[in-house]
Computed example of a mutant assay.
Amino acid sequence: MQSIWWMVFIVSFSLLILLLLRSRLSVQWLAYVGLNVVVAGLLLYLVDWAGSSYQFHIPINVPTLAVVAILGVPGLALLAAVKLVVI
C-alpha cells in the first residue's frame, strides 16, 4: 500500500513540475524563489558562524529559512531578537 502512495506522489509531483516549467513566467518565479532561499541560507550561516564565538546560534531549518527568505534582513533581525529575548 505504501508503494502505491509513493507512486501517486511521484506522478503528481512530476506533473506539477511539468506544468510549472511550461510557462516562462513560472520559471522566472522559481529562479527568484530559489535565489531568495540560497541568500537566506547564506545569511543564516554567516550569523551562525559569527555568533559561534559568543555561543549565539540560530538553527538553519525550514521555518527560519522561510522567515529570512520572505522578510530578508529584517526577518533575520527578528529571529535574533526573539532568540535573545525569549530563549
Rank of each mutant, 00 (worst) to 15 (best):
S53P: 00
V47W: 09
L79H: 04
S26P: 02
S23D: 15
I60E: 02
H57E: 07
L16E: 13
A40P: 02
L21K: 12
S52T: 09
N36M: 09
Q28D: 10
W6Y: 14
V38W: 10
A77K: 00
L65N: 09
S3I: 03
I17H: 09
I10Y: 11
V67S: 05
A50E: 03
L71M: 14
A80I: 06
I17G: 10
L79T: 01
A80S: 13
L43Y: 00
L79E: 08
L78P: 00
W49I: 10
V37R: 01
L43G: 04
P74N: 02
A80E: 02
F9T: 08
Y32D: 05
L71K: 13
L44W: 06
G72I: 07
I17E: 11
N61I: 03
Y32C: 01
L46Y: 06
F56L: 14
A66G: 08
F13D: 06
V38E: 04
V27H: 03
F56M: 12
L43T: 01
A50P: 01
V33I: 13
I70G: 01
I70L: 15
V27W: 05
S14L: 15
V86Q: 02
V73I: 15
V68T: 06
V38K: 12
L78I: 00
S26A: 08
L15E: 14
V68E: 05
L42Y: 08
S53Y: 08
S52L: 03
T64L: 07
V62A: 13
V8S: 12
H57A: 04
L71I: 07
S26I: 09
I4M: 11
L16S: 15
L16W: 14
A77Q: 00
S3E: 14
N36D: 09
V86H: 00
V38G: 07
L16I: 11
V33H: 09
Y45C: 02
P74L: 03
Q55C: 03
V8Y: 04
D48V: 00
M7S: 15
L19D: 05
A77E: 00
A77F: 00
I70H: 02
V73L: 15
V82P: 00
I10V: 14
S52A: 11
L78A: 09
A77Y: 00
W5R: 15
W29Y: 13
Q2H: 01
L43E: 01
Q2N: 07
V85P: 01
P59Y: 02
G41D: 01
H57Y: 11
L30H: 06
V82K: 11
S23E: 14
N61Q: 09
S14Y: 14
Q55A: 12
